[in-house]
Each structure stands twice: as structure tokens, then as C-alpha cells.
Amino acid sequence: MTRNPAPLGPDGAAPDDDRYRPGYELVAERLLHYIAEENLRPGDRLPTEQGLAEILGVTRNVTREAVKVLAAIGRLTVRRGAGIFVAAAPAVADNDQLAHYQPTDMEHVLMLLDYRQVIETETARRAATIATPLEVKAIREAALESAEVGVAGDADAFGHADELFHTAVAAAAHNVFLQSSVATVRKFAAQSDVLLFHGLAPGSLEAAGRQHVEIAEAIGAGDAVRAMDLMAQHVDTTRHQFENRIRDRLFTPDTRA
């Protein structure tokens, strides 16, 4: 289901389309493929940094940076004096396919966004139907906050407001399974954001904030059909922005140090 990664150079460099990506990102991607290919489970111990470097054919330094990144997004656990271990994926430790989610594989990312659309359009529909006045207020406040910080271009503040908004909509659906699914999808999406965009949003914060406000208005008005349609458009916009950002990464030289 996942594409086979291109061969890496000792410093983590790769040919062609991946030539502008930092070496540690490519090694992190290759390491996740290695974990999937070996069918390693949460809690399984990996080889040492040197051992992984030899397996992947790269230097130990770039391997160390890749391990740090994967530990930061919750895919690996590093225990001093004990070694490197596979960490449990969020809420899906017993599901092999989800535990081996590849955050830099476009096929996986698009499937995640497709699933997100299914889940979040339903939470929007239910919220428009059964949300309490307090829940509607929480959704509106989060939407307005996201719109405000989106115009200002404050990515960190927007990330916080975005989390509040989608969590509030999910809570207003009054279904713990839907709420858990939304939280899980967002955790997986965050892994892709970190590895591909270094935590930055793949598209316009201002546009996303406006969409949040429109969704909140539909939910507040009790218009379930419009709330569903607007949420579907919101996720679809994210998908297109994500694809565009990927193309930009492939064909625009990286100016980072």
C-alpha cells in the first residue's frame, strides 16, 4: 500500500524529487518503512543508532536526528540506557495498519483526509441537530478566535484555536466514538505536518478561519445540511492545499539552512 522509498545517500540525501528535503526527514520516512516491513509492534526494541544507520545506509548523525523527530511526534520512545523502542500509535496500538501509518506517504495522507471528511461531516451534522447553547457558544468562540489569528498569520495561535474548534464540534455531536476518531485523525495529521511542513499549516490560515466561522454559523442556526456541506468543503480545501504544498516542496529549492 505504501510506495518503496528511493535509495538514500550516506547523509540522508535522495535523488530527483526528494533532493530538496532535509536528510533527517528522508531517513525518518525510511525508518518508518523499516518498522512496517519488519512488522514491529509497539514496545518492540529497535537496533541501536549505529545499527539503524548501517541498515539504512546513512550516517549515525542523520540517523540520530531522524530518531529525535520520530520520538517528538510519538512514533518512537528513547529510553536512556535501554534503547530505542516502537511507541504506540494514538488509540490504535492493536491495529497493524494504523500503527504503521506513513506520515510522508501521499497515499496514506489522502486516505487520512478522506476518512477525516467522513467523520467530521457527520460530527458537524449531529452538532447542528443536537448541540446545546453552551456547546454552540464554544464552537463560535473557537471559530472567531481562529479567524482572528488567521488574519494575523499567527500559526501557533491558529493551531490552538483550530484544535479547540474541531474538538468543540466533535463534543457537540454527543458521541464518544466520533469524538475519539476526530482526536485520533488530528494526531496522525500532526505527524505529517511535523515531518513535511515542520509544524506549519499546509495552506491559508485566513481562509481556514473563515470556513470555521461559516461552519459555526450553520451549526448555530441548526442547519444540518449546510453544516455538513461546509465541513466537507473545509476538509476538501485542506486536501487541495496539502497537495499544492507537496508540489511546492518537490519543485521549489529549499532555502532553509
Rank of each mutant, 00 (worst) to 15 (best):
H108L: 03
M228P: 08
A173P: 01
G9C: 07
H212A: 00
I119N: 06
G81I: 07
D154C: 11
V213C: 03
A91M: 08
I215G: 02
E141N: 06
E54Y: 13
T255K: 04
A224Y: 10
A147F: 15
I35L: 06
A91H: 11
F251V: 08
L110W: 12
L31M: 07
R30W: 06
R226Q: 03
Y20E: 05
A207E: 10
F85L: 01
L178S: 09
Q117H: 10
V149F: 03
M228H: 15
L144Q: 13
Y101W: 08
Y24H: 10
A142R: 03
V27W: 11
A91C: 12
A190D: 02
D96V: 14
D248W: 14
V185D: 01
G23Y: 07
A93Q: 04
V92P: 10
G74M: 04
A168K: 03
R226D: 01
D17Y: 15
P5L: 10
A128C: 01
L70G: 03
A227N: 08
A172V: 11
I130R: 09
D17T: 14
G220Q: 01
A232W: 12
G9Y: 11
F158C: 03
I119S: 06
R126H: 06
L144F: 11
G222K: 02
H174D: 00
E37N: 12
F188E: 01
V176L: 13
G81C: 08
P133F: 05
G159Y: 12
I35R: 12
L26F: 02
P253G: 03
E206M: 11
L31Y: 04
I35G: 01
A152N: 08
A190I: 06
A66K: 04
G12P: 01
A152W: 04
L26K: 00
A99P: 03
D18A: 15
I55H: 08
L76T: 03
D193T: 11
F158N: 02
V92F: 11
F197E: 02
T238R: 15
D248L: 15
F242P: 02
T123F: 10
E214S: 14
K68F: 09
A232F: 11
T2P: 11
A143L: 03
A82M: 07
S146Y: 13
A227Y: 05
R30M: 05
Q191G: 06
D193Q: 13
R226E: 01
R239L: 07
I130H: 07
M1K: 15
